[in-house]
Design a protein around this nucleic acid. Sequence first.
DNA 1: CTGAAAGCGCTTACAG
DNA 2: CTGAAAGCGCTTACAG
Lengths: 337, 337
Amino acid sequence: MVTIYDIAKATGVSAPTVSKALNGIGTMTEATRNKILETAKQLGYEPNMSARTLTTKKSHLIGVVYDDTGMSRGFGHPLFSVLLNRFREQIEQAGYDIIFLSRHFGMSYFAHSKFRSIDGLIIITPDNDCPYEEFLPFVDHKVPCVSTNTIIKGICTVITENESGGYKAAEYFIKKGHTKIAFLSGPRNNISFAAEERLKGFKKAFSDYGLSFDENLFEECDFWHVNAGYEAFKRLYSRTKDFTAIFACSDLMAYGVMQFAEENGISLPDDLSIIGFDDDSISEFSKPHLTTFRHDAVKIADMAAEMLFQQLTDIPVPEIIRFPAEFIERDSVKLIK
Amino acid sequence: MVTIYDIAKATGVSAPTVSKALNGIGTMTEATRNKILETAKQLGYEPNMSARTLTTKKSHLIGVVYDDTGMSRGFGHPLFSVLLNRFREQIEQAGYDIIFLSRHFGMSYFAHSKFRSIDGLIIITPDNDCPYEEFLPFVDHKVPCVSTNTIIKGICTVITENESGGYKAAEYFIKKGHTKIAFLSGPRNNISFAAEERLKGFKKAFSDYGLSFDENLFEECDFWHVNAGYEAFKRLYSRTKDFTAIFACSDLMAYGVMQFAEENGISLPDDLSIIGFDDDSISEFSKPHLTTFRHDAVKIADMAAEMLFQQLTDIPVPEIIRFPAEFIERDSVKLIK
DNA sequence: CTGAAAGCGCTTACAG
DNA sequence: CTGAAAGCGCTTACAG
């Protein structure tokens, strides 16, 4: 391993001067700087980030909380995977690297982030059983931090406009002549409010159109995935068959409904209209092609990165930024009289 | 930040003794060790990995090459995303962390890995335009290294048995009465041999069954994704319509075929039978449900992790390990007379 | 069983 | 414009 001392010796200057030349700071003659830079290249010098981090306390490392338990999709999640991908690109363009934060060996996310001297973090999706309190130390210690799914007091969140999404789903059904519309909720907990927000908008549309939502048509899934949708729909369907449409809070859950429907001779969209959420890559290829909502994942990721960079340079950021989901109209909703 | 010196001062011992106690090495009285451990906990001590890495040259960091350009799925790729997910779990269980290796700012993967002092790396999927030579320095410097998709001389590769997959696809078609079977290849380059290997097995089945493969029914896609499959099939179909079945080297490409078929009134599987590869999550929900091959991603990831750990402890590893893909029979192949 | 010394590679004031 | 000194937090021989 070649160090700045090797370069110093080879060029006949001191280590600090080499350091300054390499970092493009300080003052020195062009000749000195050039000679140092050239020698560095010749010798195949690579900076040692551990040493730099130790002295500067800056690691150029961004921690990522991505523990997609209970989603059953891991890195394949239609929203989170794109978020991660795009966020990573932005981060790397800015000269940072990404490291996953985990909670192993009784270490908290915070402890892990100190351990690795991270400069900032993004919370994409935490452990299912991760308590809200895990994130408070980041707020207390003013660690630059953004979140894209979980709303945490004191942390800048960039997230989809769930409420308007729920509203549009209900409105679309209503305009297609439906009035008996079921709501298949995702699990509600104190970490993610997506299901709640979509329900709120959903109900608002009902009242705006002079309708009232039948609470008997509400059913909640244990998880956000296919099987949970299947089971929840089964519960709903065995309780009542008096509905012509259903809004599923995720495409994955919608596939669960479609699976149950296929097995039980319920024809889509003739017997039952359906709208999902997420625009999973599957939706374009399923039969019927699923009408759904697409998160603006690229915008969310870009904005999250920007908000993080702002904090890294001590610029204050807003508490929450929302981007509307795009309505993707396909073939899973029937027009009725 | 509390350091080992703070603990030393608080307990009245020296820093080296604290270090030994914390690391569970060296000799000392139970009393001393307990007092140190307790004080460390009380003070909220967290080790500083940069300092440790600087002295030990061990970062407990595993570099991951995952640059899914040209796949159009990013972290959503049906095989790679599962590989990454599972591999990450194993790595973290062992007390390591994952960091992505990139090639920004003219840095090579190797330079980046020196920069971060990584202990080992896994190559899941490199840049599309990444030259083979990028990986040679790792071999030369004996950096612990595994690969799960790219076969590189000197690097331990854990990978799917592509050849037997191709063989089984052809055999299945033949047994269903097909003889005019097209082969939709993935792009062939010097980084990934998956398409070639599948073709080899495919042709072997033909000859084993006394048939000969019509080279006019071969068509190659530019990329592994949907659009490329669509375009390639279009080329094939406008050249000849004299085939009853097609094997697509990826499910994504198969969807491209299905899309073209839908637009052009080709009914699946009545007019055309199809088999894919990868078992993309979509395949279970497409119409017809796509018959395909499932990689044993969990086994591959587990083995890759194990091979890496072996190298980390200087145990020699084999050059290549293969796991068969599981044949998933669904509804996209028609039995013909 | 315990500690003094030196070093890992780099950067930051500060002095000249 | 350039360098001597000190320090970041930890570990490794080595000595006692």
